[in-house]
Computed example of a mutant assay.
Amino acid sequence: MTTWYPVAVTLLVAGVIVGVMCTINMLVGPKRAGAAVKSEAFECGNAPSGSAWGRFSVRFYLTAILFLIFDVEVIFLYPWAVELRYLGMFGFVEALIFIAILCVGLVYAWERGALDWD
């Protein structure tokens, strides 16, 4: 049970901080619920242009998903780079196979036109 003590303390402190911040917000925050500005979409300080329910191209989402996939996959290379000396040639070959699979996926996405913005 002593191994879970730091986790319990962290969760308790996080819960207290969230509760205190929400309470302060309710006590100090503005109470104007009917303000016309609150019903408008926020667009970086610019005047709203069009509906907030506008449609995005599917290519936008596809590019975002591809970015997330390759970004997360590259993060897996950091532990490998830290332990490269310990892993030796076996770890090096495994990382090369991993990078090759990523390159094949990137070439496939490129050939399918997933990265074209026409």
Score class of each variant (00 low, 15 high):
residue 51 S to F: 07
residue 57 S to V: 01
residue 50 G to L: 00
residue 40 E to H: 05
residue 43 E to R: 10
residue 61 Y to F: 15
residue 40 E to A: 06
residue 46 N to D: 08
residue 44 C to G: 07
residue 61 Y to Q: 02
residue 41 A to R: 09
residue 62 L to E: 14
residue 39 S to H: 11
residue 43 E to P: 04
residue 42 F to I: 03
residue 50 G to Y: 00
residue 58 V to D: 15
residue 55 R to Q: 13
residue 39 S to N: 14
residue 65 I to R: 04
residue 38 K to L: 10
residue 56 F to R: 09
residue 61 Y to V: 02
residue 64 A to W: 15
residue 57 S to Q: 02
residue 61 Y to L: 05
residue 54 G to Y: 13
residue 59 R to Q: 05
residue 62 L to D: 11
residue 34 G to W: 10
residue 59 R to M: 05
residue 36 A to T: 10
residue 64 A to C: 13
residue 40 E to Y: 02
residue 57 S to K: 03
residue 38 K to P: 01
residue 63 T to E: 07
residue 38 K to Q: 11
residue 60 F to W: 07
residue 37 V to E: 15
residue 39 S to Y: 10
residue 40 E to P: 00
residue 65 I to K: 03
residue 63 T to F: 05
residue 62 L to Y: 12
residue 51 S to V: 11
residue 53 W to H: 02
residue 63 T to D: 06
residue 56 F to D: 09
residue 40 E to I: 02
residue 60 F to P: 01
residue 58 V to L: 12
residue 59 R to P: 00
residue 49 S to N: 13
residue 57 S to P: 00
residue 58 V to H: 14
residue 47 A to I: 11
residue 33 A to P: 01
residue 42 F to N: 06
residue 44 C to T: 07
residue 44 C to L: 14
residue 49 S to K: 14
residue 65 I to V: 04
residue 50 G to H: 00
residue 56 F to N: 08
residue 41 A to V: 15
residue 62 L to I: 15
residue 51 S to E: 12
residue 49 S to G: 09
residue 35 A to S: 06
residue 49 S to I: 08
residue 49 S to C: 10
residue 35 A to H: 03
residue 52 A to S: 08
residue 39 S to K: 15
residue 61 Y to G: 01
